[in-house]
Design a protein around this nucleic acid. Sequence first.
RNA 1: GGGGGUAUAGCUCAGUUGGAUAGAGCAACGGCCUUCUAAGCCGUGGGUCGAGGGUUCGAAUCCUUCUACCCCCGCCA
Length: 561
Amino acid sequence: MKEAITRLLEQTLASMAENGQLPADLTPKVQVDRTRDPSHGDLASNVALTLAKAAGKPPRDLAGAICAALPANQIVERTEIAGPGFINFFLTQDSGQAVVKRVLEQGEAFGRSDAGAGRKVQVEFVSANPTGPLHVGHGRGAAVGDSLCRLLTATGWDAASEFYYNDAGAQIDNLARSVQARCQGLDPDSPEWPADGYRGEYIVDVAKAYLGGETIDAEDRHVTGAGDADNLEAIRDFAVAYLRREQDLDLKAFGVHFDCYFLESALYADGAVEAAVERLVANGHTYEKDGALWLRTTDFGDDKDRVMRKSDGAYTYFVPDVAYHLNKWERGFGRVIDEQGADHHSTVTRVRAGLQALQAGIPEGWPDYVLHQMVTVMRGGEEVKISKRAGSYVTMRDLIEQAGRDATRFFLVARSPSSQLTFDIDLAVSQSNDNPVYYIQYAHARICSILRKLEESGEGFDQDAALQQLDKLQEEHEKAVLRQLDRYPEVVANAAVNAEPHQVANYLRDLAGDFHPWYNAHRTLVEDTALRDARLALSLAVRQVIANGLDLLGVSAPESM
RNA sequence: GGGGGUAUAGCUCAGUUGGAUAGAGCAACGGCCUUCUAAGCCGUGGGUCGAGGGUUCGAAUCCUUCUACCCCCGCCA
């Protein structure tokens, strides 16, 4: 609807320019906004304000001229000039009610678009090292990243989700040594405990399983514990498989699916890391110093150069990162979004610098990043410090088990990624009824309940007939719901473009907030068949949009609660 | 010291990309269930949008200077 008005205004301005009512060289940016106050109509534009100076007319006069020049159409009932020169559009009843038909006809497709035109995009998220259970921060990444994939798919992108799985490098060695120490009966306070070892209790579980000869069935690997505390290699393989399986279980419980798990070790195995290094050296962006190989990232906007190959011969993590991203580029992902915690912010410049230094034709700002700010966990009114290496933890599994999948997901996705998030466990668990997700799901369940009631009553519902009766929707509550439904496609488009799933969450809250008052004020199953049909049609539309929106967040839409 | 983020009601947070009188939930207070589900609805109170300056018809939103908090600044990831 907003677009229709925008086009109408553009036409009008173009014809005014032809008539000489406006300067011909004007390239007006037509902006149309929804009004906050219904007394200002349905939509409003500020064109008269922005063009006043160029047109050499007072804004209100110009607004009047524009209104007078507006071509005849089916959607605008009348216009008003308000305030300093806003043009307020009051839409015809038909145009406002037509959204019900669109929703019911398009069903699950309502709100989707082809803006992405089938282009490939990859979203990488979570990418936790297999050195411990997933914690709340990973949960936020999972919720945001997964929703982002759904949003991109819904807006016409060919979206693929990916988990970069770091199964090589120093932290894995560290993990193996920690498990070995536990196998040997050491605890983190003993003097022989490895430096920087993982101190968490879960390491004990891994060690017990290894010593007990347990078999681990992870998604991509099956390992049986050798039971030999001296075999560090066997311990490493077992520990990685063990923790990988734990992460699989958590992600599955969270309803998050990955199209691809990418193994860091594969980059070493197929020579991609070496090849990247050679290319960087050949391009002249490296130098040796203090026994290490450095990349001159300062040539590409970094504040200091970075070590690629340590003096012990091993590569720093960012070298495989660069090789990995080159691989993504070569796989044809013209767009890549890396969803990470803000504590990894420093890798952004570094990876981009490395990619530029490869001189592989990769655009400068590639890839995109969505960095979510840190999650603070509160329990018993106190902050719970999360430290993987120290072993203090609030795991994703705890949250899902205690607060439920839907509430946890909603909670983690409902805020702007750039905003720090306080996850109050007591609130999520003990007062879960206060969680807005139930408010939204309840609206869906209520509508389902009405339909069950309708069925019990033996009355029928003819959708085609109902769509002819939409003019019966005259209550203010109903108009509010109609206006809200009309917004949905814009919200989805906006959320996808800005990579902000929380906009969908906010919208659903608003929609439910328009539905519940209507439900309370007016019965749907009334005697008057025409009115009943009209209200049922509107209710079905609300149910559809709630289901569509919740799906974008990975949250279920229950039929009863 | 440098880089990034944030600052909006008692608390947790929105704010449609610069629009009209700044919103929601929770918390507080007062009402509403023999009616399609009360996880709901109706009403009341609550604000120097961190502070100063600037840009313009118009600023919570943009620029600038401060202040406070979070994250990063490793030959860890």
